[in-house]
C-alpha cells in the first residue's frame, strides 16, 4: 500500500500546513498513535509529542550522538530520521532500556547493567549525552565488533561527551563487556 499525502505548495506567498498523519510508533514495547506531520523527526516525536525527554537533542544534525536510540536493536541518530518512517519498527529509548534489553542488574535494582556501570565508573558529568552513550554502548554490544579498548573508543566516537568522561565511559562499557565477579 502506498501512503501518499497532498503536497503543500512551496511558495513564500501561500504557505500551507503540512498534512498530518496518524502515525503508529512502537516505543519501549507499547504502541502509540500520534497525529504528526511528515516533518517531525523521530527525536522531536519522542521529546515533544510523547514527552520521552530521556533522548537528548545535542545538535539535531547527526553530529553528536546525544539522540541515539535503538531501532530494531540497532543504534541510530533519531534526529536524522522522520517519525513517520519508523512505523512498524521497535524503538527503544533510555526509558525502556531495562525492559527491552535484558532486564535489571539484580532484583533490588531497576537499572540495566550498562546504567549501573555508568554510575559506578562515573562515566558522565553533566549527564546530557549519557542516555545516548548508554543506548549507543548497548547497540555496540549487539553489533559485536568491539573487542579491545581501542575498538570501544573508535566505535563509541559517534557520541560526543563535552565534559570529557571518555576514559570512564570506556571503563564502564568494558566492565559490562567483560564482567568480573568482583567489579560490579
Amino acid at each position: 500500500m502506498n501512503l501518499t499525502t497532498e503536497a503543500p505548495l512551496i511558495s513564500k506567498k501561500t504557505p500551507l500546513l503540512p498534512a498530518t498523519h496518524s502515525v503508529r510508533l512502537t516505543v519501549n514495547g507499547s504502541e502509540r498513535e500520534l497525529q504528526l506531520a511528515p516533518w517531525t523527526s523521530l527525536l522531536d516525536a519522542l521529546r515533544e509529542y510523547m514527552h520521552l525527554t530521556g533522548t537528548k537533542k545535542g545538535c539535531d544534525h547527526g553530529q553528536c550522538g546525544a539522540c541515539t536510540v535503538l531501532v530494531d536493536g540497532k543504534r541510530i541518530n533519531s534526529c536524522l530520521t522522520l517519525a513517520i518512517m519508523q512505523e512498524g519498527k521497535s524503538i527503544t529509548t533510555i526509558e525502556g532500556i531495562v525492559q527491552s534489553e535484558g532486564g535489571a542488574t539484580s532484583e533490588r535494582s531497576d537499572l540495566h547493567p550498562m546504567q549501573q556501570a555508568f554510575i559506578e565508573h562515573d562515566a558522565f558529568q553533566c549527564g546530557y549525552c549519557t542516555p545516548g552513550q548508554i543506548c549507543s554502548a548497548i547497540g555496540m554490544m549487539h553489533e559485536g565488533h568491539a573487542k579491545t579498548a581501542d575498538d570501544v573508543r573508535e566505535l563509541m566516537s559517534g557520541n560526543i561527551c563535552r565534559c570529557g568522561a571518555y576514559p570512564n565511559i570506556v571503563t564502564a562499557i568494558q566492565s559490562v563487556m567483560h564482567p568480573q565477579p568482583d567489579t560490579l
Binding site: M1, N2, L3, T4, T5, E6, A7, P8, I10, P15, L16, L17, P18, A19, H21, A37, P38, W39, L82, I84
Partner: peptide, 19 residues
Amino acid sequence: MNPFAYTRAEGVSNAVRER
C-alpha cells in the same frame, strides 16, 4: 525545514513514477 508531502513507495517502478 519546509513542509513537504510524504509517500511511502512500495516497488521500484512505483517509486520512479512518483518521482
